[in-house]
Write a protein that binds this DNA or RNA. Structure first.
Lengths: 348, 348
DNA sequence: CTCTTAATTGACAGCGCTGCCACGTGCAAA
DNA sequence: TTTGCACGTGGCAGCGCTGTCAATTAAGAG
């Protein structure tokens, strides 16, 4: 039971080679004769050898570790948990096969000392790469803190696309335009838009997409159809109430995120407005909730997993010495049509 | 910028002591003169020294690492993300201040080789403790795999409460009884119950609590009012349809989890059954969705954060040499009354 | 068959820390 | 005075691996 874990030396002596050769095999280094490699691999299998990560890290001066930093909105009990889980999954998908570990680092940017704290945490951990999720990736203090650790990092959807940083984003603007034209194609002429928190850059781009879409569909921009939310469900409700007060109500509402769309649906349900009969509602993000709401929500699926996976992979490859990418990599989202949108009702 | 990280030796020479003494201070070992300690601490601060975790782990033969194993239901896009996030938070809360890292380990028990894979992962990581979340903690293959790593572990809500394992659970049965009597106190005489997946032991206990509650409230058990779900939203819908077909419909439905309760609400909404006017609905778990549904869902809040925090703390203390707890620690849940439950309607 | 070059392997010094043990000191008990 | 002992401190091996570089061998070249 308590048999000592096999070390590289055990493997070496069983295989009749030096520990260095075992190390080579384990690390897939070149210049190992095939027959030798097989011998070593057999020994590894026999002894159930697993390299000791601490020893590896110590000797090689790099931790096989990626940190995923995301907004700790837990305090607010928002449904953003789905986001986080998806991002974690993507990151794990990149890390696991490469023998990297993933450390999760929630960070509450609302605290004044968030940057400092974060830096401290990161410095202590000494990861080989840091992935910063939106919306933290839009915040100067956070990005500064990450930068200050002097560790390679990737920003998700910061929207800057600078030359010294690698960045992974999705096509918020384009896909939002597409959603708008989709609504227009259902016959909607009065399509309202609920803006989100403008500090969240990706969310901001969705508004641009909405405008693009209107133009493309040949619909006029109407000021009264655009209202300001703050990404929360509550703000979605307020915005909905505001829109429903209009003399000439919109027949479709496109919210910059699903939470706000859910808020719209709550109010509609309370007011007896039928969806999608009287009103089409579309969101953005495709959180788990979107499928559960009744009716289920038409929304935009963000490629969150792929984004963090790409980000993490880039960092891992970078830590292997491969020159790091910079600039922007865009991973397209997709529209998920569900029950909450439908053709405009032909009424009197 | 690229200045070398300070090592224990830098600190030692700056403080004018041996590295061993620095080590003592860092590890809060006894028998260090106060003046010495201060000198060392000052040096640490000056140099911004942080012990290298790899070196520590290597030398001390233990990783400052806790692994949290949970069900990877991601594939199914269920709203259980909130669960997982909460559990992660609790675990982090215990790990962080102690200088421990948290590794997350989703595990898909539906795969045949889940146990094997899990074991492999765990062996590779060599954590100092493993927290197994429900429902994985109820599954023999999973628990076996964890046990096989020969690492201290804590089960969450396995419901066994054996003497050689520490276990953290909540009072599912008692609180479910309370929910039942609460519904009865609203005047409900026909309270239906939707059972969950029986392999999830905690969920099973809720049924017992329902029975207890009926008895306590002096209500008869009626077979037709108890239906079998499988924890999924869809099954909640099916169960609801079944219940609504009854000649004498229940006036309240208590589902063994929130997903199924949400399913009930979907069907009710579709069939024009008003909640809580015609029907009270209660769930269990208090997932984020519970607050977002319209009407918001009365449910039972599980102390998930506290549970994982307790579990992780126990493991950390154990790794410090403190004799490990065994047996069961129960952390009570609480009823969250929201909009989906109300007094029974006095109708014709 | 010898020489050159490349492929393959091994020896060994650390990486930064902790565990173990030894040492020196001061003080109470013998 | 000697002994014992607790305290405070330092010395140093060694955790299991990788990096560097030297040694050995194989493969071509002439």
């Amino acid at each position: 039971m308590t048999k000592r874990r096999a070390t590289i030396e055990d493997v070496a002596s069983l295989a009749g080679v030096s520990i260095k050769t075992v190390s080579r095999v384990v690390n897939r280094e070149p210049n190992v004769r095939e027959s030798t490699q097989e011998k070593v691999e057999k020994a590894i299998k026999t002894l159930e050898y697993r390299p000791n990560p601490s020893a590896r890290n110590l000797a090689s001066h790099r931790a096989r570790l990626i940190v995923l930093v995301y907004d700790d909105s837990s305090v607010y009990e928002t449904p953003s948990a789905g986001y986080i889980i998806k991002m974690q999954e993507g990151a794990l998908r990149a890390c696991r096969p490469q023998g990297f570990d993933l450390l999760i680092q929630p960070c509450n940017f609302r605290n004044d000392d968030a940057g400092e704290k974060l830096r401290d945490q990161l410095v202590q951990v000494r990861p080989s790469g840091i992935v910063v999720a939106a919306p933290l990736s839009n915040m100067a203090t956070i990005v500064e803190a990450v930068k200050a650790t002097n560790t390679p990092y990737v920003l998700m959807s910061s929207g800057n696309g600078s030359d010294d940083v690698f960045e992974v984003a999705t096509n918020d603007r384009e896909i939002s335009a597409e959603m708008t034209t989709y609504l227009a194609s259902l016959g909607h002429k009065r399509i309202a838009f609920i803006k989100g928190d403008p500090t969240h850059i990706a969310v901001g781009k969705r508004y641009d997409g909405y405008l693009d879409g209107l133009k493309e569909a040949g619909l006029p921009y109407e000021e009264e159809l655009v209202v300001n939310g703050d990404n929360s469900l509550e703000s979605g409700q307020q915005c909905a109430e505001q829109l429903f007060k209009l003399e000439n109500r919109p027949t479709a509402i496109f919210a910059a995120n699903d939470d706000m769309a859910a808020g719209v649906m709550r109010v509609a349900s309370r007011m007896g407005i039928s969806i999608p009969g009287d009103l089409s509602v579309a969101g953005c993000d495709d959180i788990a909730l979107a499928q559960i709401l009744f009716p289920s929500l038409t929304t935009i699926r963000q490629p969150l997993r792929t984004m963090t996976e790409t980000a993490s992979s880039a960092l891992i490859e970078g830590s292997r010495g491969k020159p790091r990418d910079t600039g922007l990599e865009t991973i397209p989202g997709a529209i998920q049509v569900r029950e909450s949108t439908g053709p405009v009702r032909k009424n009197a």
